[in-house]
């Protein structure tokens, strides 16, 4: 499927990508474009390749076949192309992956200072700005283990934003959270979506998906099975597998 109606080059182009882990094929010829400013939500059963797909896009996993382009840059094996691609992408993980030995500010400043060569002063000012945006400026000097799960995930989002990415990838950002903390994180992501950030979010929070997504993607067994606008996706899905999946996830 293509989304270049506006004539511009897509921000992310995934073209015929396949990935194997040993003999097991985790992605089977996946093709998908994401336009600048577009919000894509990916869902699908466990083991369907959702994480693998977004990890391939920022070079955390190698694809063996096909091509991935991010903002025009071809993702190849070379250090240079991987560096160029990952500098445009922010990634938020299910398990937060904050640096436990650094304070919240330390977590936010490490990337800008070490990889962008920003001065500590500038990095600190920017970090505070993004902490305000995720609404926890008062936690700046705490350490990750002193924060709740929801706060930790918001710090992780702020840490990614400090790298000023063009694209944000979320891999089940709320799956590890207690129910009462899910909303505070989803609110932050929703605001980010409204600000025009290009994003791919793997999630099973369907209410959130309906509100935020420009496009829904359903994956199963390493393939994209269904790709549609949310109203169509939720009301008239085409494939049997997608209908079954939505049935399970919406009416349990």
């Amino acid at each position: 499927m293509n989304c270049t109606e506006n004539g511009r080059e897509p921000m992310i182009q995934v073209d015929g990508v396949s990935t194997w882990f040993g003999d097991f094929q985790a992605l089977k010829h996946v093709t998908m474009d994401v336009a600048a400013g577009e919000r894509v939500v990916v869902c699908g059963p466990s083991g369907s390749g959702k994480s693998t797909l977004i990890r391939c896009i920022n070079g955390l996993e190698r694809h063996q076949e096909g091509e991935i382009r991010v903002d025009g840059t071809l993702l190849a094996q070379s250090r240079k192309s991987i560096d160029s691609v990952r500098s445009k992408i922010g990634m938020v993980f299910q398990q937060f992956n904050l640096f436990p030995h650094l304070s919240v500010l330390g977590n936010l400043m490490l990337g800008p200072v070490r990889s962008k060569g920003m001065t500590r002063q500038d990095a600190r000012a920017m970090a505070m700005r993004f902490l305000e945006r995720v609404r926890i400026p008062e936690q700046a000097d705490k350490f990750p283990r002193q924060l709740s799960g929801g706060q930790q995930q918001r710090v992780a989002i702020a840490r990614s934003l400090c790298m000023e990415p063009k694209i944000m990838l979320f891999d089940e950002p709320t799956s590890a959270l207690d129910p009462e903390m899910i909303n505070e994180v989803l609110e932050v992501i929703t605001e980010l979506a409204e600000s025009g950030m290009t994003m791919i979010c793997v999630t099973h929070e369907m209410g959130f998906a309906r509100r935020v997504a420009d496009r829904m993607v359903f994956m199963d067994h390493g393939e994209i099975v269904e790709m549609a606008k949310p109203d169509k996706f939720f009301t008239k899905p085409e494939s049997r597998r997608c209908i079954d999946f939505l049935d399970k996830i919406l009416h349990h």
């Binding site: 920022n58 990952r86 922010g90 993980f93 992956n97 030995h101 990889s115 962008k116 990614s160 790298m163």
Partner: peptide, 30 residues
């Protein structure tokens, strides 16, 4: 040290040396 720490370092564009020096070793040494 958890694999997620390397992945987080990757996502904020740290190179190998900085990843080791600022992320992995401080935790490993503790």
């Amino acid at each position: 040290i958890d694999k997620g720490q390397y992945e987080a370092a990757h996502s904020v564009s740290l190179n190998y040396r900085d990843t080791m020096w600022f992320v992995i070793l401080p935790q490993a040494i503790r």
